[in-house]
Design a protein around this nucleic acid. Sequence first.
DNA 1: GGCAGTTGTGTAAGCGCTTCCACCCAGCCG
DNA 2: CGGCTGGGTGGAAGCGCTTACACAACTGCC
Lengths: 356, 356
Amino acid sequence: MVKDDGATIYAVAQRAGVSIATVSRALRGTGPVSATTREKVLKAVAELRFTPSRLGVSLAEGRHAANGMVLPDLSGPYFAEVLLGYEEVASELGRSVIVLSTRGREMVNDLVRDLAGRVDGMVVFGRTVEDAVVREIIGTGMPVVVLASDAIDGADLVASENVESARALAVHLLGHGHTRFALAGRDDGGDVSQRWQGVRQALAAHGVEAAEPYPCEYTVEGGQEAGHAILRPGSRSAARPQAVICADDQIALGVILAAEDLGLAVPHDVAVTGWDDIMAARHARPALTTVRQPMRALGARAARALDELITGTRTTPAAQVLPTTLVVRASCGPHPQTPPTAPSSQEEMCRDTPPA
Amino acid sequence: MVKDDGATIYAVAQRAGVSIATVSRALRGTGPVSATTREKVLKAVAELRFTPSRLGVSLAEGRHAANGMVLPDLSGPYFAEVLLGYEEVASELGRSVIVLSTRGREMVNDLVRDLAGRVDGMVVFGRTVEDAVVREIIGTGMPVVVLASDAIDGADLVASENVESARALAVHLLGHGHTRFALAGRDDGGDVSQRWQGVRQALAAHGVEAAEPYPCEYTVEGGQEAGHAILRPGSRSAARPQAVICADDQIALGVILAAEDLGLAVPHDVAVTGWDDIMAARHARPALTTVRQPMRALGARAARALDELITGTRTTPAAQVLPTTLVVRASCGPHPQTPPTAPSSQEEMCRDTPPA
DNA sequence: GGCAGTTGTGTAAGCGCTTCCACCCAGCCG
DNA sequence: CGGCTGGGTGGAAGCGCTTACACAACTGCC
């Protein structure tokens, strides 16, 4: 159904008694067109319910007026929020957004290549596509923004701060007196890698060592499984960890479920923290201590950066790292200011981490 | 950046010493091509890193190989999940997905018309675009699937069951002995309208009447505000409602926050229910009684339906209504089987509503 | 050995639009 | 009053591809 009413610019031209060139000019306001001619054209357009075919326009203009977004998954709040911010800005800039979710998909590389053929530039979440393919696409001259990962040569990077905030989180937990830590969440070589790095640095500085991260999926179920593995008596290390630092909130929620399964009270028997500050984190029981990422801003920034690259406003790749916020709630233990047993006060204790 | 390496089919043809027609045939496997020629072509393709331009292909084929999806918002879990199911199936069917979120956007009609020019068919969430515009687009011959709303002539409908499950929810609450009900969530004339209708029918059958739904936004904040308005002493009706039925889970979470603000215990002082069964519902404190919608299936069905219309497998519009599930948790009060004070048992009491 | 039926290939006509260029014709200046 | 400007317009060349059609070179058959 490319036909857009079936009416083409030729039909309009004929009906208005002018040439297609004039119709085009009248419609886009390029070049001079007399008032009377414009009238006639607009009349014909209205009568024929003509809408220019995007395909024709794009082919002639040599651009798609569309951006791509490659993300690993759309389930869970994180990616949706980023996409939201992205779409909003892209739309504002007059570009459509084509999404590609790679989760559980075969032939991802081909799908991404196909996507590349439909857009003027694309945003790629870290770890969704092989670096080689990303480089290949960059090599064709297509603007690319890498999101939430490590930089790739020739592409922009938009990410949120990880190391410092991870450190701050770990320090906060150390402040609770915990000394036995467990980590939950597969090291993805990207964002999460940096978080683990920050946590470890902070712990090491206090002479504490954490076991290898339990490599679970980034879902509540994955977290629950990890929670069982980590907290079950006699598992892994001899002594049960006092705090479980999770790579994201969903995992943390799963770990809390696992703790309940095992009859452990959070945070009394074990502290649990997440990452992202998704909606459920605030409403969870107990409310989740986590690190808030500016998810929407992440998407918005990526859209802006991509636009700069596409329009040529900027030609050299840049990297931006957005600050995060430590959000302290009940799941990491009692705090002087906020009795964790009392029903939530609306306020949350936030502490800004220093920007990267 | 339409250029796809800059290499066109002409360059390939020249390099391989054949015509562009032969290149096209060799690449898409239409028409006969000798083995040796195919070799030459593939070699040239590889050397030039040629990728056919989607624009050229689409223009010649007369189709976009892309589907649109118009949704009101991407924040919150509901729409993201639907989009997920949609994208998955669309991709499987070889179509890209272009998303358009209308939230807080001006000129929505124009954006939707533009979208229509980029796709072979589109899915439109109910209440995102004026019906007139949808009809206009249908009028151009474009396949349209309306999601989660009332049917529109000439378009497919995919929705989940509302009236019966709303009735079941109300009956369940009546079973708790509640007689004073409040409703929270703006009547949107679509899905939610049906829910309120079902609730009212069930209540009326028991001689109970509910006040007008409090017309709040579909967010946690909106729910919180509604909760205050509804539960504040001396507000609205003389006696405080014993149960607040919310149009979606986010509102319900907000109402629970409001109850806590007011020093009311849920479910002891007031029962609260949601709709959708988003992730936070399960983890909320107290866990939310709600109605589960098959969100992902909704998207997947829509994609399939749209495909049928586009390919012409089916030419007459159809409607499908997907069943929902009443999920009883702690927020509506104590139940014999599941002591609500005990930490969640993994199991949830679900009761299937009769399919519509 | 001539004729119909393959096969493999090229030619060229679109697909719907934008835009360079040429052209015509007022109006204006010298 | 003729040459110039420049506004208004049409012609036509792409943009990159698919595909109907024509055609040549074979095959196999009577």
